[in-house]
Simulated assay, not measured.
Amino acid sequence: MAKFVYRMENVLKLKEQIESQRQMEFVQAQNKVLEEEEKMKALINRYRGYVNDQKEASKNKISIVNLRHFGDCIRVTKELIKAETVQVKVAKKNLEVAQKRLADAVMERKIQDKLKERAFEEFKQELSKEEMKEIDEVISFNYNNRSI
């Protein structure tokens, strides 16, 4: 029996490797988004803490220096939150790009899989034709030699 050999097997393997690589990039992008969102949550919590501390301190006697310190901490934290918002947006944009690249890689690999399946079906049909031809030859030979 003949062995099926797909001519484009190396292309299929390459597409599978690319898909795997894109999948890793996608996971890394997801992790980066989660990391940036966690940083954002920490900054927001820090900001809320400073605001609460300022409110508590203002209820009691507080020096101008301490009041300014709280104001500076709140202002700096607001700026950090703005910067982190940009980082979160960049990370989400990178995630979208990675997702698109992964989807493209999956589609290309599936196309190669379909081509391989079609080639295998053609191989099976050709093999079936050859077997039928051999059977016809054996039957014909037996029919012709039976009178001897």
Rank of each mutant, 00 (worst) to 15 (best):
E117A: 00
I18Q: 05
N52T: 09
R68A: 15
F141K: 12
M40W: 02
V5D: 11
K39W: 08
M8F: 14
E9F: 03
R118D: 06
E96M: 15
R109E: 05
I74L: 01
V11W: 01
Y47M: 08
I81Q: 01
K129Q: 10
V97M: 11
R118A: 06
L115Q: 00
E38G: 08
R68M: 15
V5G: 05
N10E: 13
R46I: 04
K110P: 08
A83H: 07
R75M: 09
V86K: 10
I64L: 14
E16V: 10
M107G: 10
Q125V: 05
N142Y: 03
G49F: 07
R109H: 10
D136L: 11
M8K: 13
R146L: 14
E121A: 03
K93Q: 14
V106L: 09
F141V: 10
K100C: 15
I18Y: 02
A57F: 07
V27Q: 11
E130C: 10
G49C: 14
N142I: 03
E130P: 07
I44H: 13
T85R: 13
Q112H: 08
M132S: 13
A29V: 04
E122C: 00
Q87W: 06
R101A: 14
A42C: 08
E38D: 12
E121S: 03
N142F: 04
F123C: 02
K116H: 02
E37P: 02
E96A: 15
A91P: 01
E9L: 04
R75T: 09
K39I: 10
Y6G: 01
K133Y: 07
Q21V: 15
K15G: 05
Y6W: 07
K110E: 08
R109W: 03
K129Y: 04
K133H: 14
I44Q: 10
L43M: 03
R118K: 14
E121K: 00
K61P: 08
V27A: 10
K133P: 06
M132E: 12
V138C: 07
E121G: 02
E137D: 08
E9V: 05
F70Q: 06
E79W: 13
A105I: 01
V106I: 12
K3V: 09
N10V: 11
Q21S: 15
R7C: 04
A42L: 06
A42H: 06
E38V: 08
E36W: 05
L43Y: 02
E117T: 00
E117Y: 00
A119D: 00
L34K: 12
R109Q: 07
K41L: 12
R46P: 00
L95I: 09
A98N: 05
A91H: 01
L102P: 00
R118T: 04
T77K: 01
D136H: 07
E56K: 12
Q30F: 11
E16N: 12
F141G: 07
K116A: 00
V27S: 10
V51E: 05
I148K: 12
R48D: 15
V76P: 09
G49R: 13
K110Q: 13
V33Y: 00
R46T: 04
Y47T: 02
D104N: 13
A119K: 00
K41Y: 09
V51L: 11
V76Q: 14
M24K: 11
N31H: 15
A57E: 04
K3F: 11
E36D: 08
K82E: 11
F4C: 04
S63K: 09
K92A: 12
V106Y: 03
